[in-house]
Write a protein that binds this DNA or RNA. Structure first.
Lengths: 222, 222
DNA sequence: TAATATTTTTAGACTCATCTAAATTTTTAA
DNA sequence: TTAAAAATTTAGATGAGTCTAAAAATATTA
């Protein structure tokens, strides 16, 4: 049995290890969980006891296979619920995070699988993040960012890195959503900002920061 | 802010007061919550502190208006989620209780209302229990039980009192579900068992205990 | 109404998850 | 390579929710 709090720690540790490297430090976890380092230490001892992480004091933690399974299950539930909230209940993609944070802890494998089926086995959530299947396998997603694209290319927005409402609202104002097609006109050397054109022939500039938060797929390239 | 545990106590107290009379005793609450009387006392003090119940020691508790609002909100969510699980996800009516017990604590008024809308504003859940609307008002339901019906009457099953999987499975074997129409042939004086006939002309006997767990509406009577 | 039974509450302890403040270990950099 | 800085852990406390065992209050019944 894993408690709600334990599940949240495991999710944090798992995503930290994914995004950075192979281990997560106490301080990193504390920052991500918005808690104190001493609380993290306490929890790491408990998770180690339960064989959900490999932990030795003063050394960064690794997640065990058992712990990884829990983390992936939470992520699966989170993303399926986000999909449900947006596609079935008509929430905006900027409104679903906090609700999904709660729903991800509902415990019932059958519920998760029936929800998955009801939704038509979606591969990506409303932010373009891959949804693991019931075996825990993630679908492959292109990991190229808009900031890495060459001038002249045509591309499609397939995901966002930053999930904050402020960023998502900003994209909304620019008429950018998943599936939006853009053509990259110019890359300014000076600040790495980009000039892009959309399907309605609207031209606008995106800062390096914005571009590095957008996952894209080059058009006609597979 | 009400915690998950506080919400469960309030729900228990509210339903006890509904079903019995005007007040709930410590022991009754303990039984319903499957916990010890001393734990109940502790919780009643806390709920009283928060003005969710009116409590004086050694006296049975009453729920306040504030507490009632919380309880009704939990019941609303529970029943809407049950409806969703059965109607959208194809769960059986005997499988949804435990999952709904978890989902009822998800905190988002907007979610509840959007779910309600998505489901088409259902008035009754899969067990025939009334679903309060977003103002907390319950739809009216006939409260007559099968055990109170006179011989010769035609009736429709509109609800069950006992929600246990064993009872619901038993009904399933008898081909009884919500909406099932029956005609009451005979009432045996000896043990108050009933002989009924369904639409397919199958005749069977129902014990007093079963009959007193079925809510019905007399056919052609409104 | 007094004795007994039942119900309810208190006292004290436990677990989970958290905190602050102080101590320890590791890392960095002079 | 040693001193300072940073990261991490320990010690001790707190709050929510629970428990057992004992005490107190209320209800029952002879």
């Amino acid at each position: 049995m894993t408690s709600l709090t334990e599940e949240n720690y495991l999710k944090a540790i798992y995503t930290l290890i994914q995004s950075t490297d192979k281990k997560a430090s106490t301080n990193e976890i504390a920052k991500k969980m918005d808690t104190k380092a001493s609380s993290v230490t306490d929890m790491l001892k408990r998770l180690n006891e339960k064989k959900l992480v490999d932990y030795e004091r003063y050394k960064a933690v690794k997640i065990t296979e058992k712990g990884e399974k829990v983390a992936i299950s939470i992520i699966r539930k989170h993303r399926l619920w986000e999909y449900f909230l947006v596609e079935s209940l008509n929430f905006g993609w900027d409104e679903v995070h906090d609700i999904a944070e709660q729903l991800e802890h509902i415990e019932s494998v059958e519920l998760t699988n029936k929800l998955d089926e009801f939704l038509g086995f979606p591969k990506f959530d409303p932010h373009g993040d891959p949804i693991p299947n019931n075996k825990g396998v993630f679908p492959r997603r292109e990991n190229q960012k808009l900031s890495e694209v060459q001038e002249g290319k045509e591309l499609i927005i397939i995901g966002v890195e930053d999930h904050s409402p402020s960023f998502l609202n900003f994209l909304g104002e620019m008429n950018i959503q998943l599936g939006t097609e853009l053509s990259l006109r110019t890359k300014h050397q000076f600040d790495n900002s980009l000039v892009v054109v959309n399907n309605e022939n609207q031209k606008f500039t995106l800062s390096q920061k914005v571009a590095s938060n957008l996952y894209i797929k080059i058009k006609n390239e597979d």
